[in-house]
């Protein structure tokens, strides 16, 4: 099972747990319709694009409403801590929530009790809390953008808004240096997919691949495209790809979807995600050769 946890931007959405599906432009969980917008919504919708295309089980989600006050975030933390052992997902994806280092430590301790340790993926503020708690290296995949890469490289920062200036000043051109610093500080996951003008796929400090084509600068302006990449890489891992393969294909697919959509800065992330099936159909086998074909053939090992 692939389990995705994160907040949605509503005050009144209670903790909701269940399988998620896509209906048109909406996500549906336990009869609730939720929009595909920046944040956990875009991430889940992108993951669904992969699982639907490859005919895999749909993701399970643990979501709650939170507009920044923290109540929904706490409900998600508490659910995961209490239930992750019983649920025992193969892939656990953590996304938007109010960073809480204590709860993050509690979650990692709970994960240790799972019969089989899940692949742990973190993005957005769940990545901040993992780093802040000193548990970054416990995670398998982080998907930072260039600014967040500087945050990971800063040994003192607990939020990207407080990065030491000299690290931030060099965020675009010095990503390899920031990567080396972050691994040296043990403040990053085993595998990094750094999203930016050039995407970097890094494993244990070694840059395995860079992806810079097609070049679609407008994607940076579209809220949620980074979230979509996280959904892609997580779902490809769930499909059985090696972590680095999943990351490379996710980076390529997102860029190609932007090209297919003829992305402009005024587009919504859903318009990019809509392109994923066509991108997969045209490129998935070529990029890998992926062992999967449309219509099934799940050979997770």
């Amino acid at each position: 099972m692939m389990l995705i946890a994160g907040t949605f931007p509503y005050r009144d959405l209670p903790l909701t747990v269940g399988a998620v599906s896509a209906e048109g432009e909406s996500l549906v969980v336990e009869g609730r319709r939720l929009p595909c917008i920046q944040g956990t919504g875009a991430m889940v919708m992108a993951a669904l694009a992969v699982t639907e295309y490859l005919k895999l089980d749909q993701p399970q989600v643990v979501i709650a409403g939170d507009i920044g006050e923290g109540k929904g975030s706490r409900a998600i933390y508490e659910y995961l801590i209490q239930n992750v052992k019983a649920v025992s997902p193969e892939v656990l994806v953590l996304h938007y929530w109010l960073p809480d280092m204590v709860q993050t430590r509690g979650l990692c301790e709970a994960v240790e009790k799972c019969a089989r340790r899940p692949v742990m993926v973190a993005d957005a503020a769940s990545m901040y809390s993992a780093k802040g708690a000193g548990l970054a290296s416990y995670f398998d995949i982080f998907t930072p953008d260039a600014t967040e890469m500087a945050f990971l490289a800063d040994p003192d920062a607990t939020h990207p808004a407080y990065i030491t200036r000299h690290l931030f000043d060099t965020d675009i051109t010095q990503t390899p240096n920031l990567v080396a610093t972050a691994y040296g500080n043990k403040s990053t996951a085993k595998l990094l997919l750094v999203k930016g003008a050039v995407d970097y796929v890094v494993r244990d400090g070694e840059i395995l691949e860079t992806v810079d084509e097609p070049d679609v600068p407008a994607l940076e302006a579209i809220g949620g495209t980074g979230d979509a990449i996280t959904g892609l890489v997580s779902a490809f891992v769930y499909a059985g790809l090696e972590l680095h393969e999943a990351a490379i294909i996710a980076a390529k697919a997102n860029r190609m979807a932007g090209k297919f959509a003829q992305a402009t800065p005024a587009m919504k992330v859903g318009q990019i995600i809509d392109q994923f099936p066509a991108v997969f159909k045209e490129y998935l086998c070529q990029w890998r050769g992926v062992r999967y074909t449309e219509g099934g053939n799940d050979d997770r090992g």
């Binding site: 931007p9 920046q38 507009i67 920044g68 929904g72 938007y96 503020a125 600014t147 579209i222």
Partner: peptide, 15 residues
């Protein structure tokens, strides 16, 4: 027309 970046739970709300 767009906001992007960030990772805290009020960011999708502000978006």
């Amino acid at each position: 027309v767009n906001t992007s970046g960030g990772g805290c739970p009020d960011i999708p709300y502000l978006h």
